[in-house]
């Protein structure tokens, strides 16, 4: 049976698409059969992050309108053989697809894949409602800043209202020096406000941007702390117990403490 997971956030630009691409690659590397559905119709870019832009023939709108069967629209990843992308249309808008149509497509794919990940557009309008309709559970991505957390909170309320009560949290782009200086919210405050199970804390890492431009998600880069964090999230989704990374750069004081064993 497949698990259908929607990746959503409310606020735009916090890392939904980056998360979807990385989790997709990570799950596929563990031997899972994975399909990623881009529902950000009109603003698609999941294909770019995966380096698959030039292989798209048909899109989600073609599938839901019955022009082609879903298999024809799937794009297989060139490097990770069990990873597929169902791209969306760049020219249509978010009203071209409704929730029931997405449910129908997912139902058709259920059982043929281990994981179906849905990349959600920003906002709480039609595009959001469509994206969450088919999901068994939701991953809410946020950043450690007041506005992003507030939008995440709103989204959690909306998910509850749509009877999606199985919700996990990923906090992305954490800059530990800013958290330490009190310029970014810390995990304690975020957890206190959002009060949902956190499955990932991803540091801000410029390797994310570099890998995005190369079309090869950062999770494959062993040197990247963000990549390691995404790997840990994949493990947690697969049911493993993994402690959270400590990606704080050691200060001189920490090093002295370490030497003194305090």
């Amino acid at each position: 049976m497949s698990e259908v997971i929607v990746i959503t956030s409310g606020k735009g630009g916090v890392g939904k698409t980056t998360t979807t691409a990385n989790l997709g690659v990570g799950l596929a590397k563990r031997g899972n059969k994975v399909v990623l559905i881009d529902t950000d119709t009109g603003l698609r870019n999941l294909d770019l992050l995966l380096g698959l832009e030039n292989r798209i023939m048909y899109d989600l709108v073609d599938v839901v309108t019955g022009r082609v069967p879903y298999k024809k629209a799937l794009v297989r990843h060139k490097k990770y053989e069990t990873l597929f992308l169902l791209p969306t249309s760049q020219i249509r808008d978010k009203n071209s697809i409704n929730g029931q149509q997405l449910i129908d497509v997912c139902n058709e794919m259920r059982g043929k894949f281990d994981y179906i990940l849905i990349d959600c557009p920003a906002g709480i309008e039609q595009g959001f409602k469509t994206a969450i309709a088919a999901a068994d559970y939701a991953i809410v991505v946020t950043m450690p800043e007041v506005a992003a957390v507030r939008d995440a909170d709103k989204i959690i309320g909306e998910l509850n209202r749509a009877d999606k009560s199985h919700i996990k949290l990923i906090v992305n782009r954490i800059r530990s020096h800013m958290v330490d200086a009190g310029d970014m919210m810390d995990m304690e405050d975020i957890n206190d406000i959002l009060a949902i199970d956190c499955i990932g804390q991803v540091p801000d890492d410029e390797l994310v941007v570099i890998s995005t431009n190369r079309g090869d998600p950062v999770i494959s880069n062993k040197k990247s702390l963000a990549g390691q964090a995404y790997n840990n999230i994949v493990g947690r989704i697969c049911g493993e117990q993994i402690p959270f990374l400590n990606f704080r750069k050691k200060t001189l004081f920490d090093k002295i403490k370490q030497i003194l064993h305090v």
Partner: peptide
């Protein structure tokens, strides 16, 4: 009135 849940943004 007693409510046993968190009241979120917008509620």
């Amino acid at each position: 009135t007693i409510i046993n849940q968190t009241i979120r943004n917008g509620q």
